[in-house]
Design a protein around this nucleic acid. Sequence first.
DNA 1: AATGAATGAGTGTTCATTCAT
DNA 2: CATGAATGAACACTCATTCAT
Lengths: 205, 205, 205, 205
Amino acid sequence: MNTDSFSAQQRHNRGSNRRAHMRETLLQSAKSMFAERGYHDTSIAEITTRADMGVGTFYLYFKDKEEIFETIIVEGIEHIKTLVQEEVASAPEHKFETFFRSILKFAYSDRELFRIALTGEGQKQIAVRAYGSVNDGIIELLNDAVERGYLGNEYPLELLAHFLTGMLNQTVIYWFMFDEPKSDAMADYFIAFLKNGVPSALFDV
Amino acid sequence: MNTDSFSAQQRHNRGSNRRAHMRETLLQSAKSMFAERGYHDTSIAEITTRADMGVGTFYLYFKDKEEIFETIIVEGIEHIKTLVQEEVASAPEHKFETFFRSILKFAYSDRELFRIALTGEGQKQIAVRAYGSVNDGIIELLNDAVERGYLGNEYPLELLAHFLTGMLNQTVIYWFMFDEPKSDAMADYFIAFLKNGVPSALFDV
Amino acid sequence: MNTDSFSAQQRHNRGSNRRAHMRETLLQSAKSMFAERGYHDTSIAEITTRADMGVGTFYLYFKDKEEIFETIIVEGIEHIKTLVQEEVASAPEHKFETFFRSILKFAYSDRELFRIALTGEGQKQIAVRAYGSVNDGIIELLNDAVERGYLGNEYPLELLAHFLTGMLNQTVIYWFMFDEPKSDAMADYFIAFLKNGVPSALFDV
Amino acid sequence: MNTDSFSAQQRHNRGSNRRAHMRETLLQSAKSMFAERGYHDTSIAEITTRADMGVGTFYLYFKDKEEIFETIIVEGIEHIKTLVQEEVASAPEHKFETFFRSILKFAYSDRELFRIALTGEGQKQIAVRAYGSVNDGIIELLNDAVERGYLGNEYPLELLAHFLTGMLNQTVIYWFMFDEPKSDAMADYFIAFLKNGVPSALFDV
DNA sequence: AATGAATGAGTGTTCATTCAT
DNA sequence: CATGAATGAACACTCATTCAT
């Protein structure tokens, strides 16, 4: 490799890194703006100002406002999914419990993402897709349990998955208001609830 | 009372009724528009056109777009709350179970309301407030149970309430996609889940 | 007719007149702007400012920029067409000559219109349509002449019409630069040229 | 001349040729884009992409979009002018007729150029200047004829020139719509019209 | 009270032009 | 010289809100 081609390579890498960096900066800027003010009350100009760029630059990286919104959600979910899958894979004996503990952990650390998905509206379907993704993960888990004989037909799986998704969802909303309990303690309560339901005495009330 | 003041009264009543009727028409129109197209994609002009009124008339009844949105949610929730409280009051032996059966029943019959609250882009946390209301109802119930000794300190009440709210919430979302099971059967599953949680075998997966 | 319905009628007329007046003001404003600066260099804001209205008002009367441009051309041509037809009809013995004298007269008095059509571009086809209209008028005249035996097949009519249209067209361009000769004297030269062509001696040069 | 300066010269020539070639490529690219899509709907990026260059390169050869447009017209006209002058010079007995036959021939073969001039939205009167050039050629011819006593003062020369320019102009427009008659046959009609004008019988219509 | 014409601030998006590499 | 990423002015168009009638 001669100096010329090396420097060419180097320049290309620098350009490539720069490009990735610009894109990431825009994503971060948009993410925080969307979280603070919501999708409709955030303008492209505000996103680029916070990213310290010119307005036009935005359109070098994203087709339109919708696309950056979708990207934030989709990539965010994808990222969490990967992390959760890794943790689940590393605990093959307790996949079910690990799944919920793991998802709560990462949801807590990326609460902003969920706030956006929940309040973002954006093309309506995107938030739905986000939750769909969580739901699908749960269904997969339940199916696996059924196949391996750990679960009967007590409930339609779809429905059970939705109950669990709803609990996760609302837990994040809870965190919008209160910071405690943090994800570990929260997961304990969550799991306890899953195991026992509500105290049966309540049904005498 | 002389004729004059009588007719004035009468006129006043007529005016008053008329006023209430106009307001109601606007609320219905806005509710259906918001449900169909979402908050941001609905214009005041569309609301008044569907209500068969002039645009200006809107502002005689509501301060702005925000206010009618809030009114729809708040009054809708208030209405359901009243209905639920009546049913709960008529079943003093099974208040807890009745509460959930009742809320699922009315939520199912007024799914439009929840769709608006959910897709309305949490305009200034209104949707949150809506769920807050459901949550408050649950907390009240749980407090009552604690006071009467039916419930210990297994979970922080706030948290338990959120789990339950989340389940209710997601159940409505489930109904956006599937129409079955309807509210009665749904309530059976819901209650069963509350009583038993998930099959404990799942924790061996 | 009672006073009430009379005043209603009156109000409606006033509104109707007002509407027509607003529209006309916008058309005049746009026409002069387009003539001065061309289609692309004229903004809606400039049009409405000159018309002493708010920007939004523009869209109460025209769908978009393209539409007002088209309207100016089409209505302008239509208007001139009517005037020319009236003059031609009033001189049944000299329709051919009258047509050109008349069109030159009105083109001179509405030079702005032609400048717009010539420099406006706008959806390319519009200017073409404008000239098409002039051309069609000529063709009609020539066809009539053929049917009545005054014209043989010396030239393809289409072609002859285009020669004449081209002369008219360029005459208006001439007027963009020089104000003289005015339409009457110009028409004399025009007609003389039509009658005699160029001095045949030129073909010996 | 030492080797150094030789190679410098060589390098300069190579550079010079290269420079001319780049410029020409850009002109061709812009010309075809303008012809296809019009001045305003063509972006610099599209011009350079078609020329297989970077956007920035454009500005090494032309000050701005306006300048390349003007260059296309001016150089195009200049080129045709040269060709016409050559043909005219080679037919000293029939300069007048040859001029028109020649200009029609080259206009037909370079219709793209005229389409651009005509639809380019008279950017700063460039199209006018283009026609001015044609007009000037005609005037020169007529002046020559006057000086040599072949032409009297039947018409103001300027005016006569405009009539002829207008006919040429419209002939090209005719060719935008119909491909026939081609330039030779067209020239026959054109000359015939110049010689005879319209059949005088038309003035009885 | 009811109307709807008028308003203009606000926003997404484009594109000619610059300049660091 | 050549490049193309970055820029930001400019603009068409929307729509919540006002106000004269």
